[in-house]
């Protein structure tokens, strides 16, 4: 179970949030190729380790939260607003 630090509400239980996917992809321009849109819609890195992702605080303030989470250990390194640029920790932790 995660405890996620919502920038507005403070630390809240995971049950108040919905996972909303990879926060590292951005929508291609309107006239981009079909290949670019295919990659945007379907292709993900699926990293083993640190990952920047969207969580929607749907059971709380209904804001979107950017979260740097370790997919291996479930550790949450940092959270922020959608506009924040969040860095991963320097050393990748291994179990």
């Amino acid at each position: 179970m995660h405890r996620i630090d919502c920038p507005w509400c403070g630390v809240r239980d995971e049950s108040e949030f919905q996972y909303q996917g990879d926060a590292t992809v951005s929508r291609p321009k309107f006239k981009a190729s079909e290949e670019a849109f295919f990659r945007y819609a379907y292709v993900r890195e699926n990293p083993r380790g640190w990952h920047t992702e969207w969580w929607h605080h749907v059971g709380g303030c209904r804001q979107w939260v950017k979260v740097v989470r370790n997919t291996l250990t479930h550790e949450i390194h940092v959270t922020g607003t959608p506009a924040d640029k969040l860095a991963h920790p320097r050393k990748v932790k291994s179990p």
Partner: peptide, 9 residues
């Protein structure tokens, strides 16, 4: 605070 209880906001 807003939260969920028994599946209800």
């Amino acid at each position: 605070a807003q939260t969920t209880m028994s599946g209800v906001g």
